[in-house]
């Protein structure tokens, strides 16, 4: 597991910074919830009157006067899009970075197969994403305790799990693309995360764009839907798992056959 441990150490500070920033924003958003309760009815009415535009952000029947509804809108978006960008950046650079920084020749002339290198690198990406999600989950639950709210633990856990799966899928897709790149691909990574996010918004706004819900992993990371149905939407998760597996397999095949630039 030499490459895995090397990658963990290499990405440690980046993961800690991203985790700290997202966790801080989550904490602030949760801690101000009691202060917002006074004016939340007016805000809720305003949001409900926005109709399709409100649903673009995944605001369902719950509104935001309920803590879970509020969390889905305010905090979930931060964890969703912030974590998605982090996952995309981790995945997109994990293979191409070696070529970009000219270290590929050093690494690939040791007796370790490319499959193993790619496998250990992918595992390190998943570990970084797991760490970020765990830190954010712990901070979330700790802040909920501070403000004295008692949302359903099961629903909160399902919402957190949906964001974790979203991040894993985006990382898997980015990993697959990374094998085809020679440059670092930062722009492509951020682009992938934002594209999926806006596809999700568009699919919520209008029926004409509804088909996009099948293309974006943000479809199953909808806190309002999860709270309403008390489960995850396994149709979207199954598609996400298939897409992730296909992207990972494509990445492995390409990386094994690839001519590595000097």
């Amino acid at each position: 597991m030499t490459v895995y441990l090397h990658e963990l150490k290499r990405g440690r500070s980046t993961t800690l910074i991203w985790s700290a920033v997202i966790a801080f924003l989550l904490a602030v958003s949760i801690l101000i919830f009691p202060m917002m309760l006074d004016s939340i009815d007016e805000l809720n009415q305003a949001l409900q009157s926005m109709g399709d535009f409100a649903s673009a952000f995944g605001i369902g029947k719950l509104g935001i006067s309920d803590f879970i509804g509020y969390y889905s809108l305010e905090c979930g978006e931060m964890l969703g899009i912030g974590g998605a960008i982090f996952a995309a950046l981790c995945g997109i650079s994990i293979l191409s970075r070696e070529e970009n920084e000219h270290t590929a020749e050093f690494l690939l002339t040791h007796p370790i197969s490319r499959t193993r290198i790619a496998g250990e690198k992918l595992l390190s990406v998943f570990t970084h994403i797991t760490a970020l999600n765990m830190i954010c989950s712990v901070v979330t639950f700790f802040c909920i305790l501070i403000i004295g709210q008692h949302p359903s633990f099961r629903i909160m856990a399902l919402i957190m799990l949906s964001y974790y799966l979203l991040h894993i899928e985006i990382a898997a897709i980015s990993f697959g693309i990374s094998a085809f790149l020679k440059g670092r691909g930062t722009g492509i990574g951020i682009g992938i995360a934002l594209l999926f996010y806006f596809m999700s918004m568009l699919s919520n706004i209008t029926d004409n764009m509804r088909f996009m819900q099948w293309l974006t992993p943000f479809s199953y990371a909808n806190g309002s839907w999860i709270a309403e149905h008390q489960t995850l939407d396994f149709r979207f998760i199954a598609i996400g798992a298939a897409v992730s597996a296909a992207a990972i397999i494509a990445g492995f095949i390409k990386y094994n056959k690839k001519d590595i630039a000097a």
Binding site: T103, F106, T109, P111, S113
Partner: peptide, 20 residues
């Protein structure tokens, strides 16, 4: 490849490593 790389010591023309 692995059997070869086990028994070979290679120095590339442009030696680039992990800077940190």
């Amino acid at each position: 490849k692995n059997e070869i790389l086990t028994n070979v010591g290679y120095l590339p023309a442009e030696a680039s490593f992990y800077n940190r």
